[in-house]
């Protein structure tokens, strides 16, 4: 590039019309539009594949997936549209290289600039969205803020063992369980650790995921908002039966939860104040 002045465009016959009026630009815009519309029609797929949501933070996650998919459709469409058009329009087939070369223009600074600015803006949007959502996604940025007037969080100690999860409820007289029982609409605080190797505690439908690391305590929390039975899996390869290191998280009403806790032999009765509030 040293010895060549930067030729913007140098088509011989006539000065070109401004970029947006050229026929190829219009055709590409059309292809782009079609691809974008097709893409936008498919944005529900990730969220649909992710299945039901059992917590507000899973709602946020699914919203994020949908938003990103919606944002990426036009971006992908730009590149594919130009590629498809170029290949279809300017294709040359033959065994020998074409006699005449294509026009010798080296760059187009406005386009490069516009392209960089646009990708910068998109990046910023994605980043700001992520920062806003971090507050609600506790594993990444510390614990989520409690909603006003909520009950104090219930602590569950989660221990990953090679290929079995177990859960201890320290406030309920250290009752223990292999299935994670959670009361509906109550903040649950997870203290996660591991007895052996690194596991990753994952309640799929609640969007809860945090590593269980031996010798460390990692924390996360969740407010389950749907009754039902959900999947707890391990998301970090932990040896032989990693695939079978799964159990269930059952979200039940506070009454059912209390009954279950009594049945398990909870020594400390659940304080009545909390019960009233939880029952509401």
């Amino acid at each position: 590039m040293t010895d060549t002045a930067v030729h913007q465009t140098e088509d011989p016959p006539a000065p070109e019309p401004p970029g947006w009026k050229r026929p190829e630009v219009r055709s590409i815009a059309l292809i782009w539009l079609v691809l974008t519309i097709v893409g936008e029609c498919l944005v529900w797929i990730p969220s649909w594949l992710m299945g039901p949501s059992a917590s507000t933070q899973m709602d946020d996650i699914k919203q994020t997936m949908t938003l990103f998919t919606a944002m990426s459709a036009p971006v992908a469409a730009v590149i594919w549209a130009i590629m498809i058009y170029s290949v279809a329009r300017w294709r040359y087939t033959g065994d020998e290289p074409p006699e005449d070369d294509a026009p010798d223009f080296r760059t187009n600074s406005p386009v490069v600039l516009l392209w960089s600015i646009l990708s910068g803006v998109l990046t910023l949007v994605v980043f700001i969205w992520g920062m806003l959502k971090i507050a609600a996604i506790p594993a990444a940025g510390g614990l989520a803020a409690l909603p006003a007037g909520a009950m104090p969080p219930m602590v569950v100690e989660v221990t990953g063992n090679q290929w079995v999860w177990n859960f201890t409820y320290p406030e309920l007289g250290n009752i223990q369980s292999d299935v994670l029982y959670l009361p509906l609409d109550r903040t649950t605080l997870f203290d996660v650790t591991s007895a052996d190797v690194i596991h990753s505690f994952w309640i799929v439908e609640m969007g809860v995921k945090v590593d269980a690391t031996p010798g460390q305590l990692t924390k996360t929390d969740v407010v389950p908002h749907s009754i039902g039975s959900f999947d707890v899996r391990c998301a970090e390869l932990c040896g032989l039966l990693h695939a079978a290191m799964e159990t269930q998280a059952k979200v039940v009403t506070q009454e059912e939860f209390d009954a279950w806790a009594q049945d398990k032999g909870a020594e400390v009765p659940i304080e009545p104040a909390a019960q009233e509030e939880g029952g509401a």
Partner: peptide
């Protein structure tokens, strides 16, 4: 004993 829970498989846990 533990397993792979899925909608059509019962949770069984014995230790």
């Amino acid at each position: 004993l533990h397993g792979i829970p899925s909608p059509d498989q019962d949770q069984v846990f014995v230790s």
